[in-house]
Design a protein around this nucleic acid. Structure first.
Lengths: 317, 317
DNA sequence: CTGTTAGCGCTTTCAT
DNA sequence: ATGAAAGCGCTAACAG
């Protein structure tokens, strides 16, 4: 039914090899043959067979998004879902699909399996830290800090958090607490460090509580903070989900936001603007980040890069 | 490097065809040969080449999730992202990837293009209505109402909404407004109808406002409702995003939830439980729905099915 | 139940 | 620049 390359070549009066060169844009071809081939392809309504192409080239057909986490219920994480969707949209432009794979903390075996799967064109990793080293020969990128040689599409969270802290400080907040992330997570490090530098530089007390990027823990963290340091006047959360939890926890405890306590999130998920009080946070170009990680993993772009984290001030701070 | 089928066959002392039959589980094979082949495969660490397999079988390598909507920014819709992620997880088990494709309202040409793409193993459609008819020969399923012959993984939203309305009524709410969805959207029909039947049966006034499944419109809808029917004592929203917006709009107008006005959502997204007041809504098995649609589209399951919508009562109603 | 023989559709050396 | 030919790795129709 559908015309194949041979048919196009025949009609163009050239060999399949030449037709292939023209249609795939790889390899030389005279203007004349190019002309013929293109015309023939158009007339025949030729559509290359992506699968055949990938088999011949030895490239895979899907990019795996590997998310390393302790939770089993990955789908309830908005950030994860958003990134997967973003990657799915980018991948579509390359004729590829995305698979979501939850990875345990000790993901060596899983990574080896992924590397051995020849349907995998590339691996995009998130939730990693220094200890994670993919078993793949290239075709890998991370969302988050780059790890030895592997390109990473990272958010400049140090700058973003510092900007938020600066804002709070300018507002007169002097007893600022941080709800951070798990220690095993690479992405939790930068915020923690940025917070530490800021408070010491500004001569503020350091008040840190560990969360896990979920609203549930954010809520618990709010209570803990109120218990330990009742005079806290601002809470900086490592992401929006946590901040939402903090908001809920504070409301439950009867603290007024932002009057008594200011709250900030991180990521600027759609909900940040839908809740009351609207969440002040830092916004990140998720789509561009996903796209960068994806193309870098596919080897279509040199490296990934550092993306801006811009404060978005709404009502909560 | 990696052993191929021929190597396994050779080592097992059988033909490639037999090895293929055993390893792919299709076609007959004597216990003896099966034994040999399996052993040989194990010893050689044989991993089938998914791409070659798909080329030979003529099946595609990815499932396209087509989302029909007027918005360009699909990624800011939590439901969409969640479904994509869920499909991506299910697809992974079949060695497939998912592509996300935004479809315009008039998506005929796009569907034709998707059908012509031989890398597409299946199409999962959402945001459709009766007018949409995929150009594919099978390999399609919808999330939402089934349309002529195409299986659909649908939520029993009529039952879910009715349950919510019944709850509100039992609470003494008598002036209940609905924030529905766009008329061109098939998924918006069932809730609208369910609401209509309920209010007429209960002898309540009908108060309907059209939303678009976003928080922004939900907020606007809340204001409109307050304007037109100041004595409204409950607002039922067609989804959680809308409900979040309604919550924000009511808060802004100084209405207390649930004291003055009760609010309900639909879907039970993770945020529903993170906001204050926590959103009363109806919960749906998103993963199972996505899985059903995916497997049905791939032709691995007969049809999709109707999934339960169970009320989850929290604080807002 | 098994082997033989063609493919699936495109790419890519390697000569020319 | 171009063509012939040899794959990429597996599946499936067809005899036997």
């Amino acid at each position: 039914m559908t015309a194949d390359l041979a048919a196009v070549a025949r009609r163009a009066g050239v060999s399949p090899a030449t037709a292939s060169r023209v249609l795939s844009g790889r390899g030389p071809a005279s203007a004349a043959s190019r002309q013929q081939v293109l015309a023939a392809a158009a007339e025949l309504g030729y559509r290359p067979h992506p699968v055949a192409r990938r088999l011949a080239r030895g490239t895979g057909t899907r990019v795996v998004f590997g998310f390393r986490d302790r939770r089993t219920d990955v789908l309830s994480d908005q950030w994860v879902c958003r990134v997967v969707a973003a990657v799915a949209e980018v991948a579509d432009r390359h004729g590829l699909g995305v698979s979501l794979r939850r990875l345990p903390l000790d993901c060596g075996p899983d990574l080896a399996e992924i590397a051995a799967d020849r349907s995998v064109a590339a691996l995009v990793l998130a939730g990693h830290d220094r200890s994670v080293r993919p078993a793949m020969r290239g075709r890998v990128a991370t969302i988050g800090a780059a790890v030895d040689g592997i390109p990473g599409a990272d958010v400049d969270s140090a700058a973003g958090l510092t900007a938020l802290l600066t804002h709070l400080h300018a507002q007169g907040r002097r007893r600022i607490a941080l709800v951070g992330g798990q220690r095993w997570l690479g992405a939790a490090r930068a915020p923690r460090d940025a917070y530490a530098s800021f408070v010491t530089a500004a001569g503020l007390p350091s008040r840190t509580v560990t969360g896990d990027f979920t609203a549930a823990r954010g809520r618990a963290a709010a209570r803990r903070i109120l218990d330990r340091w009742p005079d806290t006047d601002a809470v900086v959360a490592v992401n929006d989900a946590t901040a939402l939890g903090v908001l809920a926890g504070l409301a439950q405890a009867g603290a007024a936001v932002p009057h008594d306590i200011a709250v900030t999130g991180f990521d600027d998920l759609p909900t940040a603007d839908a809740v009351r009080p609207a969440l002040s946070t830092a916004t990140h170009p998720v789509e561009r980040i996903a796209a960068a990680a994806c193309t870098a993993a596919l080897g279509l772009a040199p490296g990934a890069g550092l993306f801006p984290s811009r404060p978005v001030l709404r009502e909560s701070a």
